[in-house]
Simulated scan of single mutants.
Amino acid sequence: MRQLDGQDRLCGAEINSITNLVQRGYFDSNNARIVFCHSMTEDGRNVALILMEYFSLSGYETESYEIQDLHDADPGLFRTRGLRNLAKTISRVILERGTDYCAINATGGYKAQIAIAVLLGQALGVPVFYKHEKFNEIIAFPPMPVALDLSLWMRNSGLFFLLDRETVCEKDVAEHWDERLEALVERVEIDGSNYLELSPIGQIFHETFRGRYWSDRDRVLPPPALEKRKPHLGDHDWGNAREPILAFMNAVNKIPYVRHCRTHYWNPDLPSPNIFRLKGEEIEGVFSNGTWTVKIKVETTAVTPGQREACVADLNNWLTTGK
């Protein structure tokens, strides 16, 4: 294949498109790394190996990622998990390397991937290219005025972090459900109960704002607390839960903008998802070991709605990542 012109159709759409990108000067071929995302199929693995070898011999650094559940054996799994995992992988690659240094080539693979790539590019501000087999040259999708709501993500960040890890029983989040989330989730029935999981669009929404928030967190968070009070446990018979609850509250209290936290609800027989959320103008944390649940009020230095939303997003990020 390397004896052919890279634009020869016998080389295939992937090689044709990358060769065209180089020839048109869209990126510096001397310093470029090419990352291939391939399906969870034998054909996908084989094609990725061929492409990596082809471009490695041309002097490029190459790597590949197999996208879990991205295959045509189960259309339902492809639509939900497969496309979600594709969005997660592309987002991670781009955010690790920086949006100013990346572009997406949406040529090759399943047609549904093009839609995911275009939406990701619009959300992350990354150029997206595509070459149809009948096109003489590769084209760039033009930027479109797509606006995503950061405030919606921050207010519901706990749910997004939960759904990024697992399915969530619908009744567990019904009390604080926001109808604007409908397009970002899908419902599945498990053992007679309705569960929520992120849709592919929801995954893009979450990945976009998680990366954007982390870049801007120092700018949007309120100032550190000058004085702190010790966490307060209410008058309950906490039993064996006392130590883990107090340890959790002490950890929350060490976060710079937190002034104080106190318990306001206790149920020894109720499991719940761990989450931080807004209740009116107050921040509430829900902490559970899977058998009992405690709810705590978190007092911060936030004075505006935007700062409170930023605190909720930061607390949920801390709950998930520990930082």
Rank of each mutant, 00 (worst) to 15 (best):
E179G: 15
F36W: 11
T291N: 12
H236P: 12
L233W: 11
R187V: 13
K295I: 08
F161Q: 12
E14T: 12
A251D: 08
E207P: 01
Q3R: 07
T291F: 07
S272H: 06
T19Q: 08
F160P: 09
G44Y: 05
L70K: 06
F135S: 13
K228N: 05
I255L: 10
F78G: 13
L233F: 11
Q307V: 07
G285H: 01
H232V: 00
R84D: 14
G290N: 04
H38E: 11
W292K: 05
E207S: 14
P127M: 02
S91R: 03
R155E: 14
L162N: 12
G202Y: 04
V188Y: 14
E284Q: 06
C311A: 11
C311D: 01
K295H: 12
I34K: 09
V303W: 09
L163A: 15
G12H: 06
A140R: 02
K297V: 05
R262G: 15
K111N: 12
L162V: 08
H206W: 09
A313W: 01
R92E: 15
Y65N: 11
I201N: 13
F36I: 07
F27C: 11
E284I: 04
G280Y: 00
P142R: 06
D178C: 13
R217I: 07
G108E: 02
E243H: 04
D69Y: 10
P127Q: 04
V220T: 12
R262V: 00
L57E: 15
